[in-house]
Structures are given as structure tokens and as C-alpha cells.
Simulated assay, not measured.
Amino acid sequence: MKLLMIEDNESVTQMMELFFLKEQIEATFIHDGKEGYERFLKEDFDLLIIDLMLPSMDGMTICRKVREISQVPIIILTAKESESDQVLGLDMGADDYVTKPFSPLALIARIKAVSRRGKNQSGDTDDPAEKDLLKTTYFTVNKSTREIFYEGKPLEALTPKEFDLVCFLMEHPRQVFSREQLLERVWGYQFYGDERTVDVHIKRLRKKLATDEHLFLHTIWGVGYKFDETE
């Protein structure tokens, strides 16, 4: 995995450099927001880790500008405890956030989860037409190209995590999953105590999927979420 970390705190990047070396992750560290965004434009990266508070260009702006041209997975770092900042970061297109101070091992676990998903999606299959297509009453999902069509028309571009989440729920129609289960099954790591990540992604997906006749993604109060085309 080739990773770009835009973080102005050099002690944080020095600490993570040691962990990345141990995990054999190729990492580039940039301490300025504008410089980091320009580096992203010049090279191909598999994952971006972006601090929100940066000189020259803040992390929210970087995240928004990246999402205009790329669906590369993004994890945002923030020292703020404000729920609004975390939710806004997700609304800007980030796939996940980590609040400082954070455990390097927890961040590594999330990065590895992204890597595992990439390997699974690029693996060869004996019958791509059979394994890469998922069809429901209204939707057709092409796992290979990571596209979703509603009654033959392509949906608005989904972020990598939005695609993973809705694809997982479509593969288990009418089955209710808790937020903890979705974090483990879709994000690929154990539940750390914050459910807002799932809630924000469901909210964004509803805006992209729902029609006047169907909600598709339903909240089961006190339990979790499900995909259901019959309600």
C-alpha cells in the first residue's frame, strides 16, 4: 500500500513512520496542506490520511477537492472533540476519522482493513459475470467496476466506503445489522465506541438512493439498519 499522510505535527508523523516501516507500508509525509494536495495530484496513492488543522489549506478543503476528482479512501485526523467537526469531515467525503490522541495500532488496523478489501476486490474469479454482479429488484451492482445502477441508470458517484456499505446491505436484504456489526463487517475493525461513522454514511446513501416511492435503507430503532425494497 502506498499512503500519503498530511499532518503538520512532526512528532505524530515520526511516530507513525516507525509503525509504517514495521508494517512495510510505503508512506509519504507532508506537513503543509496545499503542498500535500499538490503531491496527491502528482502521484497515485492507495490511501490518504489527512489532519483537519493544517497550514495553507485545511483538511476539510483537501478532502472536498480530492472527492471532486477521486474516490481514494480517506481517513481524517482531528484533535477536536466536537461532533460537528467529525460529521462534517464525513460529509466532505472522508471514509472514517480518528480523534487525537490516537493509538497507532488502531490506525494501522484500519489501514490494513482497507488493504484487505482492495486485495479481495482485485482477486481473480472463475466466473466474473456471476460473482461480480449483484441484482436486486431495482438495482444492479457491478463489484468489479464498483458501479451501482438504479433501473439501468448509474447512481451518483459513491465513495469507497459508501459502496462497500450499501453493497453489503444489498447482499443481505431485510437483515438488520447493528452499527457495531457494520463497523466490523464493512470497515473491517472492531467497534471502538463511536457509531456516528455509520450514521453519517447511511444518511449520505439515503440521499443518493432514495426515491419518492422507496427509502431502501431503513432504520430499526434500537437495533440498526437494513436494506429492504419491499417497504
Score class of each variant (00 low, 15 high):
180 E>Y: 05
196 R>Q: 13
105 L>G: 01
170 M>R: 05
157 A>C: 07
148 I>A: 07
162 E>L: 09
155 L>R: 09
110 R>W: 14
118 G>C: 08
183 L>K: 03
130 E>F: 14
87 V>R: 15
119 K>I: 08
150 Y>K: 06
194 D>E: 15
142 N>K: 06
197 T>P: 02
94 A>Q: 01
99 T>S: 10
159 T>C: 02
144 S>A: 14
118 G>N: 13
203 K>Y: 14
168 F>V: 10
171 E>H: 04
86 Q>V: 07
120 N>H: 12
147 E>P: 04
196 R>A: 07
97 Y>Q: 07
182 L>K: 09
195 E>R: 12
174 R>M: 14
122 S>D: 11
113 A>N: 07
121 Q>A: 15
107 L>S: 00
93 G>C: 01
192 Y>L: 08
102 F>Q: 02
106 A>D: 11
148 I>C: 13
129 A>I: 05
186 V>P: 00
158 L>V: 08
197 T>Y: 01
175 Q>N: 01
136 T>S: 13
93 G>F: 00
113 A>P: 15
86 Q>P: 05
130 E>Y: 15
138 Y>S: 13
157 A>G: 06
119 K>F: 10
110 R>G: 02
183 L>E: 12
149 F>P: 09
109 A>K: 12
108 I>T: 05
156 E>Y: 02
123 G>P: 05
198 V>G: 01
88 L>V: 10
90 L>K: 06
108 I>G: 02
198 V>K: 05
95 D>H: 01
195 E>G: 08
118 G>D: 06
105 L>E: 11
116 R>W: 03
86 Q>D: 01
184 E>G: 01
195 E>L: 11
154 P>V: 11
188 G>E: 09
132 D>V: 05
110 R>T: 07
191 F>S: 01
169 L>P: 12
176 V>N: 09
137 T>S: 11
147 E>I: 02
164 D>V: 03
200 V>T: 00
185 R>L: 09
157 A>M: 01
191 F>Q: 03
109 A>C: 04
129 A>Q: 09
146 R>S: 06
159 T>K: 06
159 T>D: 02
92 M>C: 15
114 V>N: 08
186 V>I: 06
166 V>E: 07
192 Y>A: 13
161 K>N: 10
96 D>I: 00
190 Q>A: 11
151 E>P: 05
132 D>I: 04
110 R>N: 01
115 S>T: 15
125 T>I: 12
140 T>W: 02
133 L>S: 03
195 E>F: 08
97 Y>F: 13
186 V>E: 00
204 R>H: 09
128 P>H: 07
84 S>A: 12
144 S>Y: 14
181 Q>F: 14
150 Y>H: 12
96 D>E: 04
138 Y>Q: 14
161 K>R: 13
165 L>H: 13
90 L>M: 11
124 D>F: 14
182 L>E: 04
174 R>N: 15
121 Q>S: 12
121 Q>I: 08
102 F>E: 04
166 V>M: 08
167 C>Y: 10
84 S>E: 11
129 A>S: 10
131 K>Q: 13
132 D>Y: 11
196 R>I: 14
158 L>W: 11
153 K>E: 07
119 K>N: 10
194 D>Q: 15
100 K>D: 03
155 L>Y: 07
191 F>E: 09
167 C>E: 15
157 A>Y: 14
166 V>A: 04
101 P>G: 00
187 W>A: 02
108 I>Y: 04
